[in-house]
Design a binder for these strands. Structure first.
Length: 291
DNA sequence: CCTTAATCCTGGAAGC
DNA sequence: TGCTTCCAGGATTAAG
């Protein structure tokens, strides 16, 4: 089973990028597949000539924020848009990865390596995505990213408050699982964590969103933060000893109590876990523990 | 409003 | 063993 980039994985990618590419400037960009750059894409020229100043994240989406090298020497000659830094938004989709290769580490791009940023320290950042569900969007400014793209997303799963989530859930008659998967409700949850979360909270995936009480929502948010935080920590540790298969699979199993365990005994009551489809997604749950 | 289905795509698993 | 088939998944779109 390969790593699925949901919020915790994306967060770890961001942490990695912060320590490797932030502060570096982009000397050259190789676009090996043009169609992986979606939407109107000419303006930022893929950040060539810019310095990467920071990495932002909302839900599962990553933003590489650039800054013109002469920005400091040339402040405020015209309107604010002139100095709003350009950025690139990256979604890893199902199989996307963003990997940094230091100067001395060789890197042989294969057919699935779509974009390579060459950095001034000799390092390279490579976007690879075999299945190509992921993609990349360029923006003139961070504010454009927020207005055009991130405004459609709900609050980040790590920071949303119980009352905000409850307000969103209250006026929907969709299944709770569908609502939680919808990035417009809150950003960051995917199929795996939604199943785990609902199991952890003892909530049936088909319960109506508006039937989830304030107290249950509180439990949901509390559990969600704990789950994501744990996964982030674990991701960090699995990255360190990536080659150690046993350590990695052990952590993986610990996190997944229901996902991928259809018909296996419920970790809480022992009854075989049920499997169904909700919003077109495989859904595993316990009929007894999630009434 | 809401759901379902189709679409995109490839690698891995299962079946024969 | 090698071939075929199926299926997973997120987001978007169209259709019911």
């Amino acid at each position: 089973m390969s790593i699925m980039p949901e919020l915790p994985e994306v967060q770890n990618v961001c942490l990695g990028l912060t320590t490797t590419v932030v502060g570096q400037s982009v000397t050259r960009v190789t676009v090996r597949r043009r169609d992986i750059v979606r939407g109107p894409s000419r303006p930022t020229n893929m950040l060539r000539g810019y310095t990467l100043t920071r990495i932002d994240r909302l839900g599962k989406q990553i933003a590489l924020v650039g800054q013109s090298p002469n920005h400091r020497n040339n402040p405020g000659t015209s309107g604010k848009t002139a100095h709003s830094p350009p950025c690139i938004c990256i979604h890893l989709g199902m199989t996307g990865s963003l990997r940094f290769y230091p100067k001395d580490k060789p890197h042989k791009p294969d057919i699935h390596t779509h974009i390579i940023w060459h950095l001034n320290n000799g390092g390279r950042l490579a976007f690879r995505d075999p299945r190509r569900f992921g993609g990349l969007w360029t923006f003139d400014s961070v504010s454009a990213l927020h207005e055009i793209r991130w405004s459609k997303l709900g609050e980040d799963a790590l920071t949303i408050t119980p009352s905000k989530l409850h307000a969103k859930l209250q006026h929907t008659r969709r299944a709770i699982k569908s609502a939680l998967l919808d990035q417009a409700t809150l950003a960051g949850l995917g199929n795996i964590y939604v199943d785990e979360l609902l199991f952890g909270c003892g909530i049936h995936p088909l319960r109506l969103g508006c039937d989830v009480s304030r107290q249950e929502t509180q439990r949901l948010v509390r559990q969600m933060r704990a789950l994501l935080a744990k996964a982030i920590r674990l991701g960090g540790s699995t990255l360190r000893d990536y080659v150690d298969t046993t350590g990695r699979s052990g952590g993986f199993q610990y996190l997944h109590q229901v996902y991928g365990r259809s018909a296996q005994p419920c970790p809480r009551c022992g009854q075989p876990l049920a499997c169904t489809t909700v919003s077109g997604r495989t859904t595993v749950y316990c009929e007894k523990c999630q009434p």
